[in-house]
Design a binder for these strands. Sequence first.
DNA 1: ATATATTTTCAATAATTTTTGAAAGTTCGA
DNA 2: TCGAACTTTCAAAAATTATTGAAAATATAT
Lengths: 168, 168
Amino acid sequence: MKLPEAKQHFISSWGAFGTHWGINRTMAQIHALLLISPDPLTQDDIMEDLNISRGNTNMNIRELINWGLVERVILPGERKEYFTAEKDIWKVVKQIVKERKKRELEPMMQLLDKLEDVEGDKKDKKVKTFVDTVSSIKRLGLQADKTLDVMIKAEENWFVSNLMKIFK
Amino acid sequence: MKLPEAKQHFISSWGAFGTHWGINRTMAQIHALLLISPDPLTQDDIMEDLNISRGNTNMNIRELINWGLVERVILPGERKEYFTAEKDIWKVVKQIVKERKKRELEPMMQLLDKLEDVEGDKKDKKVKTFVDTVSSIKRLGLQADKTLDVMIKAEENWFVSNLMKIFK
DNA sequence: ATATATTTTCAATAATTTTTGAAAGTTCGA
DNA sequence: TCGAACTTTCAAAAATTATTGAAAATATAT
């Protein structure tokens, strides 16, 4: 397989993959394109390469910047803005984990805290099942939270080699 | 907060949460409802409780069964089918991990294998960046794959206590 | 076997999400 | 300060995804 074909496959699969993870297709495709581009690209490069409109491109680049996955680059003597993606995949994964933890896990934990002390007779089977379910989700969530915190701070080698000690 | 209110909050947040994870809102809501229901429910119970149509209920229950999160229960002497969800949250998490690994991670790994041996001059910066990116994603993916396999087989206590040894 | 209860299917519809593109806004050099 | 280059916004349109509900299929009791 030649590069242009491989590139198309990579971008389109990364896009489809993204949709399973709450990231929209175009955003993931732009990310994929930047991941495999040795040099920074302009909005126009991206528009042209992916065949998408200017507005769409702009919106999704900004969203990628919010996620901390893409950076603006100013090239000296150039008027246009350029964009580049972090190439270290471990850093990318950590950044995504960090954002999703903040956006999803933490709010869920806060809600569970409130729901855990629902008023009512603990002898009532319905109340008991509710509280038990909420508590056990909370317990697992707290463990996940702690584990992810450590992961976010870790170096890839450290993290992986430690995992392998346990899980050989 | 009283039970009925807490229940509504739980169901609707679980639904919203699900959408971030590639699961549709209704499917997640039905799952939430079954999680906190001490006894199995019928399709009609679910329809009524969540205010959704019969077809929608049926489709999403079947999808939950495909995911291995819900089971059909036949109560002796009853004509209707009942449904119940696995209550052990650790098992639920493992089941979800297992399914998503199969549906998403594994196909992605297969693609990366093919893309990694793209034809072309490795001196070419574009080819090099492409291959490097694909390889490093593959490397991390393989590690994730192995780790998840171990997790899927593990007991909660074993897994968590081992994690804690590392990450204390 | 038949009537009745229950489940499943699926075309039509509704709701939601994404994309477009043109207009408005901004930046910067001369 | 002006004008060209470039970026951002956002209402409308398109595309996608979810939901409905009635009809068809299936299962069960008598």
